[in-house]
Each structure stands twice: as C-alpha cells, then as structure tokens.
C-alpha cells in the first residue's frame, strides 16, 4: 500500500507538467474539465447517499454568477476572492434548499433539485437588468495577488489554479469518504432506519453532505466562469445538470478521481461531437447512458466495486496492512 501513497503526487506532477506541454486549446478544455469535474464529484458524492440530483446546475450557475456580479458591481478581479464568493454562493443556496431537500429521496429529490435549478434559470433570464438576460455577463481575466497575468501566461495560470482547487477538494472528499460521516452517507443509502437507530440523524447526514456538495459545485462554477470569461443562464438549465449526472455515471463512483477522468473525456468528446454531429449528439449521450443503466449488472453502484476501488480510496473491504 505504501507505494500507492505517492501515486497521487505523481499524478499531480504529470498534470502540472501537462500545463506546459499541451497546446492552448487542449489545456483550456482540461481546465474546464477540472472545474466541471468538481460539480461531477458532488453528483457522485450524492450518489453515494443513493440520491441523484438533476439540479447541480443551480450551484454551478450560482457560483459563476457570484463571480460575475462581484466583478461587474464590486470590481472584484482577484481569483481567490472570486472563488471564495463562488463557494459562499454555493454554501448559501445549499443551506437554504437543503432544509427542504433533506426530507426527500429518490424521485422527489431528483425532481425538486431540478425545480430549484429551473427557478434560478428563470430568475437569471427575467432579471436581465442585473444579469444581462440571455446575453449573460462577461468576466474579465482574473488577477492573482494583484497581478493580472499577461496574455501568454493567462491560460496556464488559470489551469494551475483550477488544478490546485480541484486537488484541494479531491483531498477533502477523500478524507470525507473515509470518515464516519462519509460512511454514514453510504449507510443512509443502505438503511435509513438503522442510521436513526444508531442515534444519528439521517437528515443531518444528508444536509452536511449537501452543504459540501454545494460549496464544491459553487467553486466549480466560479472556476469555469473565470476560465471561459462569459456566463449565461443556461448554466442553470436542467440539461446542464443532466450532463453532470451523465458524466458521474460515465466515470462511475468507484474513485474520487473518476469524476475528473469522466469530465475530461466528456469535454473532449463533446468538442468533436458538436463539430461533426450537432443534431445527434444528445441522442448519442442518451444511448450511452441507457446502455450503462441497462447493462451494468447491479447498476451504477457496481462500478464502485471494480478496479478503481483497489487502487485508490473508498476501499470497501479493507484488510489490515500486513
């Protein structure tokens, strides 16, 4: 097991190196994949509790628009501050909507998250004097500690910053899943009655998880806003949320790395699909998702008991080290 300890560091080294090696466009896609990967990680985390959220676009958009507003109305250009605001927006919304959502599971949870994200979409669209409506808002390149990076370094700076943020949350989720609360989340999926009869509050377990997911997705939204430089209400649209679910499903919930790998794959495939099959792209997604749902024996969760489990965290059947 010792040798596996350094694997994440090697991976980090490779990813940092890629920042210099990759051509600008691919690096941009990878930056986006990392930012969106944070949202997908949140979806995967909720899946651990047996919940599917069709409304992660809510936090994603909230994080992005927090940055947009701060920049437009508060003159904020600092990347760290912008990210913190994105996190705060995600946290605030999760704290509010979580009060209602903690009571629901299954279909209700899925559809209520969807409804919440559509409410935000409606607001973003209607309040065009503030939000810019369908035109959205432009986001200027951020400053790092007071320095706006020159054009030729901006891409790599963004990439490294996003990578660092993703790394922080990845570690946080890793710790979380190994902790009692993380196990309680999976326990809720298995058997809520027993969770209550251990003296733990099921709704508190879900609420806390939901807060973490909100923060993470808010940060994901803020980061992608900073790297794309333009935000639109569609970020909150339910098909955006559907994409996050799709990627989570694609990557599987077997490892904390899976959402990012899935996300990277998705970004690259989408780029080409938009170009070559603009009208059959969704159909393709639909068929792939259907195949995953229908032909994965034991379903989505079965992915978690496959190879990645053995390699990285979330070890289901842990044995003492010899």
């Amino acid at each position: 097991m010792k040798s596996l300890r350094i694997l994440p560091w090697i991976l980090a080294g490779v990813l940092i190196g890629l920042g210099w090696l990759l051509p600008g466009w691919s690096r941009f896609l990878l930056t986006l994949a990392l930012a969106r990967g944070l949202v997908v990680l949140g979806v995967a985390l909720l899946m651990q509790a047996g919940l599917v959220s069709f409304g992660q676009g809510l936090f994603f958009a909230a994080g992005a628009y927090a940055v947009g507003f701060a920049m437009k109305y508060g003159g904020v250009r600092d990347a760290f501050l912008a990210t913190a605001l994105g996190a705060l927006a995600g946290l605030g919304i999760a704290a509010l909507t979580g009060l209602l959502l903690a009571r629901y599971r299954g279909i209700f949870f899925a559809m209520l998250t969807l409804a919440f994200s559509m409410i935000l979409y409606g607001i973003l669209l209607k309040a065009y004097t503030i939000t810019g409506g369908t035109d959205g808002l432009r986001i200027a390149p951020p400053a790092f500690l007071g320095h706006v990076l020159p054009e030729e370094h901006a891409g790599i700076g963004q990439y490294l910053y996003t990578l660092a943020c993703a790394g922080v949350f990845l570690y946080l989720v890793f710790r979380y899943l190994e902790s009692p609360l993380g196990y309680a989340v999976r326990a809720v999926r298995d058997n809520e009655v027993r969770v209550e009869y251990l003296g733990l509050s099921v709704s508190r377990v879900l609420y806390l998880t939901y807060l973490l997911v909100g923060v993470m997705s808010g940060v994901g939204g803020a980061l992608s806003a900073l790297s794309i430089g333009h935000i639109v209400p569609e970020l909150a649209y339910w098909t955006t949320s559907g994409e996050f679910v799709f990627v989570a499903l694609l990557g599987g919930t077997g490892s904390v790395f899976a959402p990012f790998i899935g996300s990277a794959l998705f970004e690259f495939i989408r780029t080409y699909a938009y170009k070559y099959a603009p009208y059959t792209w969704q159909m393709l997604l639909g068929f792939i998702m259907l195949a995953i749902v229908l032909f994965m024996p034991g379903g989505i969760w079965s992915l978690s008991t496959s190879i990645p489990r053995r390699v990285f965290g979330w070890r289901w059947f842990w044995k003492p080290e010899a």
């Binding site: 679910v245 969704q282 997604l285 068929f287 998702m289 259907l290 229908l294």
Partner: peptide
C-alpha cells in the same frame, strides 16, 4: 435515468 436517456434520444 433511463427515462432521462429516452428524453435525450
């Protein structure tokens, strides 16, 4: 998820 796939298709 299955009916969502159907929706996309």
């Amino acid at each position: 998820l299955a009916t969502y796939s159907l929706f996309l298709i």
